[in-house]
Amino acid sequence: MTDQDDNSKAQAEQLDFIRPFLNQFRGDGVKLSSEPVWAERMEEILANLEPEILDDITSRIRQSSENQIIDFDAFGTAHNLTPAEIKMLDSIVGGLSVPEHAAAHNIAVNTARVHMQRVLEKTGSNRQTDLLRKVFGR
Rank of each mutant, 00 (worst) to 15 (best):
R26L: 11
T111Q: 02
S64L: 10
K31N: 11
K134D: 01
F136W: 14
I57H: 03
H105C: 14
T111L: 01
G137Q: 07
F25V: 06
R138Y: 14
E121F: 03
D16V: 05
D73A: 13
T82V: 00
S65V: 06
N110F: 13
D130R: 04
A84T: 06
L22G: 08
D56Q: 14
D28C: 02
M1P: 03
S64M: 10
H101P: 05
H105E: 13
I18P: 09
D16E: 11
N67K: 02
V93Y: 06
I107K: 14
T111I: 00
L132R: 09
H105G: 10
A74M: 08
R41D: 13
G95L: 08
T77C: 09
K122D: 00
M88L: 09
A78V: 00
D6T: 01
Q128G: 05
G29D: 01
F75N: 04
I86Q: 10
A108P: 13
V93S: 07
R41T: 09
A39M: 01
R133D: 14
E52V: 09
A103Q: 15
N80C: 00
A78C: 02
I70Q: 03
Q63C: 03
V114Q: 07
G94H: 05
G29C: 03
A47Q: 12
I53F: 10
A39D: 03
T123N: 06
V93T: 08
Q117Y: 09
E66T: 12
L54G: 12
A103R: 15
L15V: 14
L89P: 05
P99L: 06
A10N: 12
K31Q: 10
L81P: 06
E43L: 08
S8V: 06
H101E: 09
H105R: 15
S91A: 11
E43P: 05
H101G: 04
E50T: 08
E121Q: 04
E85D: 02
A78G: 06
V37S: 12
Q128A: 07
Q63P: 02
E66A: 13
L131N: 04
P51M: 13
Q24N: 07
T2C: 03
A78F: 01
R138E: 15
E13G: 00
R138H: 12
E66Q: 11
T123L: 05
N48C: 12
V93E: 07
L89F: 05
T2S: 11
G76L: 03
G27N: 11
E50L: 15
E100A: 13
T58L: 08
V37W: 11
R113T: 07
I70Y: 03
F136I: 09
L49Q: 15
H115K: 06
L96C: 06
S64Q: 07
S97P: 05
